[in-house]
Computed example of a mutant assay.
Amino acid sequence: MANFLSGDTYLTNLVTSPDEKIGIGSVSFEPGSRNNWHIHHDGYQILLVTAGEGWYQEEGQPAQSLSKGDTIVTRDGVKHWHGAKKDSWFEHIAITAGTPEWLEPVSAADYDALV
Rank of each mutant, 00 (worst) to 15 (best):
G52Q: 07
S67R: 13
A51M: 11
N13W: 10
E101Q: 13
I46E: 07
S6K: 14
T9C: 13
D8M: 13
G23R: 12
L103P: 03
K79W: 03
A97N: 14
I24C: 11
D76N: 13
W81A: 05
T12P: 08
W89N: 14
P62A: 00
A51N: 06
A97S: 15
V15R: 01
M1H: 14
V106D: 09
Y10R: 14
A113F: 00
Y10W: 13
A2E: 14
E58V: 08
A2H: 15
L14S: 07
S67T: 12
I24L: 11
G83F: 09
E20F: 09
Y56P: 02
G43P: 13
W55V: 03
H82R: 09
G25T: 12
V49E: 00
A84T: 04
R75G: 11
P105H: 03
E30T: 12
H41K: 12
T74N: 15
I39Q: 06
L114M: 04
P31R: 11
W37M: 08
E20R: 02
E91H: 05
E20S: 01
P100G: 07
T50R: 11
E30I: 08
P62W: 03
N35R: 07
H41D: 11
H80N: 02
V73L: 11
E58H: 01
G69K: 08
L14Y: 04
E30Y: 02
L11C: 15
P31A: 11
G54R: 09
Q45W: 02
S17E: 06
A113T: 02
W37G: 05
A2M: 14
D110I: 08
S17H: 10
A84K: 09
A84S: 10
L47M: 11
R75V: 02
W89C: 10
E59V: 10
A94T: 02
I39G: 00
F29P: 03
G23W: 05
W102D: 01
D70A: 01
M1F: 11
E53H: 04
F90T: 00
